[in-house]
């Protein structure tokens, strides 16, 4: 029985088995196994370039794996027809690193967008729902602003309101804390946890901000070289004796991930230049 099933005694919402994916000749994932329990905040952590965002795109069906399977709520994402994939995506929300708000329409219209596209609700019902979603992220008063008038943190909160507009079963957060000031970061940390608990949404947070992520996560997967290096609760990982996890969690400059990019011996390089 996997660790995730230890924590929640029901089948995981997302089940990844034997995932292999490459870009060019480089394998980004080479036999990745991950379970994301229902109703949990699961963090996927690892240094830049380990393919964390790629993993979210694979879960959302925007990329196709070379091998392995990804099941979301029992459905094999990459075996679905386009119609069924879009139907599944209506139950998934995604918060992009940039917010990905539509820049030519207002905050209100951005949040109303999925409702207008996928429901036949009346205009007054849409207005009520949008205001409620904006209230949940604290930006009801910013409804008439354009995306260009928002700060980075506000844009992400609007994007979060848009992501929950259709009451999804899960939300994937792509580096939600990157580039945020401490206040915005604190707000986002609280929002992710609060939304998760209030609506029992399953949250997948991809991040390399250790402190903030460990603060809200129920389960953490640390990824390196295309595989899960370690997984467990934040407390377990903080105390981990694993060399790799220790370097990542404590931000050590040298370790299994070397400080120096691979290069010839320094003396040889210098003498070569002198010749």
């Amino acid at each position: 029985m996997s660790l995730a099933e230890d924590i929640f005694n029901e089948p995981p919402l997302v089940k990844i088995r034997g995932l292999r994916f490459r870009r060019g000749s480089r394998w980004i994932f080479d036999g990745l196994d991950v379970d994301i329990p229902r109703g949990s905040v699961t963090a996927i952590m690892g240094p830049s370039g380990t393919g964390k965002t790629t993993l979210l795109k694979l879960i959302g069906g925007q990329l196709r794996p070379d091998e392995g399977t990804i099941e979301v709520d029992g459905e094999n994402v990459h075996a679905l027809s386009t119609h069924d994939l879009y139907r599944l995506r209506m139950r998934m929300g995604m918060l992009f690193q940039s917010g990905a708000l539509l820049t030519d329409i207002s905050v209100f219209e951005n949040v109303a967008f999925p409702l207008r596209e996928h429901t036949r609700l009346t205009e007054s019902m849409i207005r009520k729902l949008v205001l409620l979603k904006l209230e949940a992220v604290g930006l009801r008063g910013a409804r008439d602003l354009m995306p260009s008038e928002l700060s980075g943190g506000m844009a992400r909160r609007v994007a979060l309101a848009r992501a929950i507009a259709l009451d999804p079963m899960m939300i994937m957060y792509d580096e939600p804390f990157t580039g945020q000031d401490p206040i915005s970061m604190g707000v986002l940390v609280q929002l992710i946890r609060r939304l998760n608990d209030a609506a029992r949404i399953t949250s997948v947070v991809v991040s390399h901000d250790v402190g903030e992520t460990l603060e809200i996560a129920d389960l953490v997967y640390v990824i390196s070289d295309g595989r899960v290096v370690e997984s467990g609760t934040p407390a377990k990982l903080t105390e981990s004796g694993g060399e790799w996890t220790r370097q990542f969690i404590h931000g050590l400059a040298d370790g299994p991930v070397p400080f120096h990019y691979p290069a010839p011996v320094l003396e040889e390089d210098i003498l070569e230049a002198a010749r």
Partner: peptide
């Protein structure tokens, strides 16, 4: 470049049609 098209796809809206 600003992931708006990816955002549409993840909102189950086909950017090619929309």
């Amino acid at each position: 470049a600003t992931e708006q098209l990816s955002g549409l796809e993840m909102m189950a809206v086909n950017p090619e049609y929309r």
